[in-house]
Nucleic acid binder design. Structure first.
Lengths: 348, 348
DNA sequence: TTGTATGCGTTATCAA
DNA sequence: TTGATAACGCATACAA
């Protein structure tokens, strides 16, 4: 019955010996039958399979791993407590790992290098086949301390100070360029930029991309119209106010995050500025829950973190198979423009 | 050097045999020295420890688990792809599991029972010590199909149809009551309620709690002022409009989620209604990023999911130790009122 | 075609 | 105080 699992004494799992006994063969035969190895008479194979199924036999992967010297697990280490980046990343990672029948150990998020060290030790002790390091910002970080051990590591949405490390990063410059090009295509001429703290590499790179795309269209990015602050809605509101008060004309705003864009949109609404008629807005992140709820819904840059996660996991699988440390420099994953309403219809 | 890990051939991890050889003792002695077992001369113990440290020896937990018949891992199964609930839950779970030196296998979120079944098999094959089932809503779900196996399972922010299952749920009725009592205490008399779909148990329970608290204060919940729809900001806006247009007086709104509350607040702002002077608002979830960014910041009910996760993990640990299925009915975890600005100052 | 023996890395029991 | 040795559950080389 349904509640059986609760009061029943915990049964010890059925082993290959149980199957062997019930099927009237030896353990070796069971192993061969179940793994399609060696030469077995078809009917024994079938009989063994049947009894294994009846008993609900599941091979003990601990024993298998011990034998194969490969655990079919990977560890994930992250500093993104809030999960904003980890969630989509994780989705992609699991997408790629699932088919390879690899399970993931998720470590508790932390910034503390000492705790991280302990997590690594724990993973090493579990003989994970590899480790994926994830972060909440893309600036270079100290290389993961493997403490003398050696196994494949890839950084996803994170970057190691070690130039030889395998890193996958969003193409922030490309993302900025996407926004700039979109504005230019729509005939906007004077672009403002409200973004996060200057110390973030992402902030600087997106700005470079924006400027490049504008230049390509014969436009110039006016430094007076670039405001960097924090990543919050609050800052979006404040910066929008400031921009409107300078009295310098502009017809579009590229925001460093959807949250900033949300704040900007709210302020424009308060001040009677019409979006997209008077002003076009492009956000960043494609954080659905914010972008879609904004009035008007935000056209935004999607950093495609799920894809980045997929690629990271795929790269890790490659390194695991290659059985060596694969020197692979940083890779940039392209972003995607998602058109909603804040720049006007998606017409080309 | 830093890049050593990348080009180096992958070293095979150091084993207890390596330590034994280097220390000039037998493997048994190493095991005893490292685990503080048996009677050993202090200096041998020290010598073994030293060489283990030098070699960077980490016991192979696969082998340990095989031997101990206990893996010190638990699996987490969830249907919450977006992570809104899983993230805080996971934080609590890991808080409780970390000190017990237990690692977690995180399974890819899914609604598909067939895929869930495969995840369970994978976890069983890894001989996890227990499983935590998590969800994105609290309505009863089909019991996890263990396929005849038997091991501890606890449902966190999820409920099994099996009445004997160990479930931890937020006290939604209590949460509703918290909101009602807060309004009453502040002198609000006519409370409106904008909430999610009626089919959610949480919606019904919170409403019951609200009504109860109001009744306790000699107030009555006016059915005309209760609107249920979806969980979105959009619905918050629409419902607020509707409420204002009915022409029925009210001086407070209890919202089913912070997102709904955000929509409500935006609409009130548009319509020139002052919060909290004209209308008080209480949200639900204490989703910091929304609640704090709303104007004014939302007073809200915090379901304390991290605490719920902690309790769930603790309960699981108990079941694992007890070595039997612990008949433990559903437990409700209390919510917490978080006072910000949307009801006026936090004065009692 | 099937069974037996060995090893994977640990821990634990029993001798020495 | 220390060293062999037998599990743990599985896969595989080799023997029958």
């Amino acid at each position: 019955m349904a509640s059986e699992q609760h009061n029943a004494q915990r049964r010890t799992p059925v082993t290959i010996h149980d199957v062997a006994r019930d099927a009237g063969v030896s353990v070796g035969t069971v192993s061969k039958a179940l793994n399609d190895r060696g030469q077995l008479r078809p009917d024994t194979r079938a009989r063994v399979r049947a009894t294994a199924a009846i008993l609900g036999f599941l091979p003990n992967e601990l024993a298998q791993s011990l034998h194969r010297k490969r655990s079919f697990t990977v560890g994930i280490i992250t500093s993104d407590r809030f999960g904003r980046f980890s969630i989509p990343l994780l989705e992609g990672i699991e997408d790629a790992l699932d088919p390879a029948r690899i399970a993931v150990f998720l470590c508790k998020p932390t910034d503390d290098l000492e705790l991280e060290r302990r997590h690594v030790d724990s993973l090493l002790a579990k003989r994970v086949d590899g480790i994926i390091v994830t972060s909440r910002r893309t600036d270079p970080r100290r290389p993961l301390d493997l403490g003398g051990a050696s196994l494949p590591v890839v950084y996803a949405y994170a970057q190691s100070e070690d130039p030889a490390a395998a890193c996958l990063l969003p193409d922030d410059e490309g993302g900025g360029a996407l926004a700039g090009a979109h504005f230019a295509r729509l005939g906007r001429r004077r672009i403002a930029h409200i973004t996060g703290p200057e110390r973030f590499a992402a902030v600087r790179e997106r700005r470079v991309g924006l400027a490049r795309a504008l230049a390509d269209a014969g436009l110039v990015l006016d430094d007076q119209l670039v405001l960097s602050g924090s990543w919050s809605e609050e800052w979006g509101r404040e910066a929008a106010e400031r921009l409107l008060d300078i009295g310098r004309p502009f017809d579009a705003i590229f925001c460093g995050s959807d949250q900033i864009a949300r704040g900007v949109a709210d302020t424009l609404r308060d001040r009677g500025v019409h979006v997209p008629e008077d002003l076009a807005i492009v956000g960043y992140d494609n954080w659905e829950i914010v972008a879609a709820a904004t009035r008007p819904p935000l056209t935004t840059i999607d950093p495609c973190l799920d894809e980045l996660g997929r690629l990271a996991a795929t790269r890790l699988l490659g390194m695991i198979d290659a059985n060596d440390g694969q020197r692979a420099a940083a890779t940039r994953v392209p972003c995607r423009l998602v058109v909603r309403a804040s720049c006007g219809g998606g017409a080309e």
